[in-house]
Amino acid sequence: MPEFVDILNAIVLFSNFVLVPAISYGAQLALGALGVTLVYSILRFSNFAHGDLMAFGTMSVILITWGFQSMGISFGPLPTALLALPFGILCAIGLSLMFDKTVYKFYRVKKSAPVIFVIVSTGVMFMTNAIVRFIIGPSDQRFMDGTKFIFRPREFKEFTGLSEGLALKSTQVLTLTVAIIAVAALFYFLQKTRTGKAMRAFSDNEDLALLSGINPDRVVLITWIIVAALATTAGTLYGLDKSFKPFTYFMLLLPMFAAAIVGGIGSPIGAVVGGFVIAFSEVIVTYAYKKFFIYLMPESLEPSGLMQFLSTDYKFAVSFIILVVVLLMRPTGIFKGQSI
């Protein structure tokens, strides 16, 4: 039997490399997937421009953060980007409403097929992508300031006396806090307020909702506002945690779709669960468990290889595989979303 300390070490190791990163990545994906799912259930199309909307919102936040920093405004131990977030959200809302008015509205009025919306949204994707690259350039941007770590691995080791360290970045805690607040606010809004109920009614049955006097333009407007806010928040949190690069944000589209579909597209709670499912499977499948098992197994049974299911290069592929498997086995997702 392994000693008690070894078990603790194994747990800390696992938390440091799997649990903590996956939770914060999962929260970011969940916020993104919520946006995808809301567009799908209320505007009734798969929005391929969502990743780029996220990039646009984050870019606005970064630019405003730089502005604040040059004016000497800071948020103490918290990143300045949090102060800039509301303004970034406003920019993203502006962009979304602009595209809705000039592009999507036309097809909504015409009641075009969902495929047409998908094609049109790739046009919007191209344009947003170009705007972002034009303004901030295609390269990596870091905009994190304030305290970086809540505790570092070395501090953790000294404090607990274990041989494994655990790092907790402030962005990880921040991500989880902001995500919980955002999701709670969204659910309260959808469940309790009049407008939220109108939105759900509209999503369930458009004709009935229209008959009962719900104003469709208002529902669409509020949906875009919420979607832009969620996308910007998700993008900013992801950028603070890792870094901002337009291409990465475009690529986040697939894990977000995967999360929304796995959870059950159209179901907000499904999007949240889906986000964590995707994040955890990406990290769990690509983690090398060798050291973990060395702590737990008697010496004679120590693994020889890395004990890794898939190389880390396949991280992105994992979410697609899950996506395809879910689409085939249970197209409505975990929470029985819509399947029109």
Binding site: V124, M127, A130
Partner: peptide
Amino acid sequence: RLFIMGLTLL
């Protein structure tokens, strides 16, 4: 050019 492409599509 990405912008031009998107605009042309739309």
